[in-house]
Structure formats: structure tokens, C-alpha cells
Amino acid sequence: MTVLTGCTRSSGNRVVSMSPTVPTSASVVSATATPSPSASASPLLPGNCAELAPLQRVEEALGVNLLGDVTYLRAAPVPQSGRTGRVTCGYGTPVTTPSGGTPTPSGRPLVELSYITYVDAKTAADRVTLTVHTDSQHATTTQVQVDGKPAWVLVGSDWDELVMADGARTIVAEVSPRILAPEKAPAVLTRLAAQMLAFGASMSPGASGAASSG
């Protein structure tokens, strides 16, 4: 695993890029970076967490300041499931500093935002349906709208989660209940998902994936 350390923000949070399966080069991460959508045949994925959801926007949605690292993970495609790409950004990631060593991310972040692309809209919608069906067995499910598109919020004892499909991409936002009260989960997760949808264009213009909680 290659760990690349980028710039820090005024709050003291470090930005760490982790790419265990897709090589990447170190780059300065700016909280004001903007995406550059292209018409390339390859899936458009955020190059860093500032493109997907800047830390400041995440903290504004939550109403709290997060301590710990911001981590960026880019995973390889999974042909068996139809996944063509995935980026997961972690916010408030715990850090471990060995004696005389380099601080490294350790443990699950308080917030995880995943942007995932698939071969087509049907595959993306099917993945959302499966996730909602599986996770709803241990959570309370509510249907919401994100920019006019259907999404599902699942509030459980371990994690609060929003999942949705938009064309050939899916959005997954997860927040620890340690920092998010159950009654606030739908509104907060909806704001986070809207921020994520702003990156790029729908993988299948005009076709929004729909899922069922049944």
C-alpha cells in the first residue's frame, strides 16, 4: 500500500492518499478544487477528496469539526460485479503514531463517502437495491430525494447510511452515529449526497437508476 501525504488545512487535518490497487502520484489537495468532467470513455472518478466533497463542506453538513485525517482510496474495477471504478473518501480518520515513526491512518473514519461507477445504469440500480435490502434488516429505512432523484437513508445502531443510483454511478454516504443523531441523519446525509452528485455528469444522461427497498 502506498501512502501519500498532501497539504494540510488550517484546522490541522492532514490529507492522506491511499491507492492500493491503482497507482497515483502525490499532488497538492485544495479545498477549492473543482472537477473537470470529460467525454472520455473511461469512467470519470474524483482525483482527490477535494473534488468529491471538500472537508469544509462535510463539516458544514455535519455541523461539527472533524479531527483526524482525510483519506483517499481508489479501488480497482471488479468485472464480476460490473463495477468499473470506486473512490472512497474518509473524514475524521483515526491516526496512529508509532514511537519515532510516521503517523498513519488507523481505524474507520467517522465519515465515509463512496463514488462508484458501473458498466450501465441497470447494474448500478441493482447494486443499490441489494444494498438497501441487505442493510435494512438491521436499520430503519426512509426514502428521500437528492436533487430530485430517489435515495434511501438507513439509520442503524452502528452506522447511518444513504445509498442511491444516478445513471451508471452510485453514491454511498456513511456517518458514525457518534457524531450524528438519528433524527438528523436524513437531512445531513442528503446534503452530503448532493455534494457528491455535483462531481461529474450522470454516467447515463437522462437515465436515473431507481431502487426498491423491498
Rank of each mutant, 00 (worst) to 15 (best):
P20L: 11
P37W: 11
T117H: 07
M164K: 07
A201Y: 14
D147K: 12
T117R: 14
P43C: 02
M1R: 11
A198G: 15
I179L: 10
A181R: 14
P98V: 07
V22S: 09
V78L: 13
R178F: 08
Q56K: 14
A139F: 06
V155G: 00
R83S: 05
G148T: 10
A31E: 15
R86E: 15
R178D: 15
D135S: 12
A39C: 06
G148W: 05
T21P: 07
L197W: 06
V29A: 00
L130W: 14
R9F: 01
A41K: 11
M196P: 12
S176E: 13
P186K: 11
L44M: 15
C49N: 00
V144Y: 05
P77A: 11
M18T: 12
G167T: 00
P46F: 01
A193Y: 08
D120F: 00
A125W: 02
L189C: 13
T170G: 03
Q195D: 14
N65C: 09
S176M: 10
R57L: 13
V15P: 00
M1K: 11
L55A: 01
G156E: 06
S38D: 13
P23N: 04
P109K: 04
L162K: 05
L197G: 04
T34C: 08
A53Q: 03
A75L: 15
S36T: 14
A61L: 07
G47M: 00
L197S: 06
S157I: 11
S10G: 08
T102H: 06
E183A: 13
S212G: 08
L44V: 10
E161W: 09
T131S: 12
L44H: 14
A76D: 14
A31S: 15
G206E: 11
M203P: 02
G6K: 00
M196N: 12
P98L: 08
G92V: 06
T2C: 08
S213C: 11
R57E: 14
V87W: 03
Q145N: 13
A124E: 02
K184Y: 10
A187D: 15
I171Q: 02
G12D: 04
V28A: 14
P37G: 11
S176T: 14
A207Y: 07
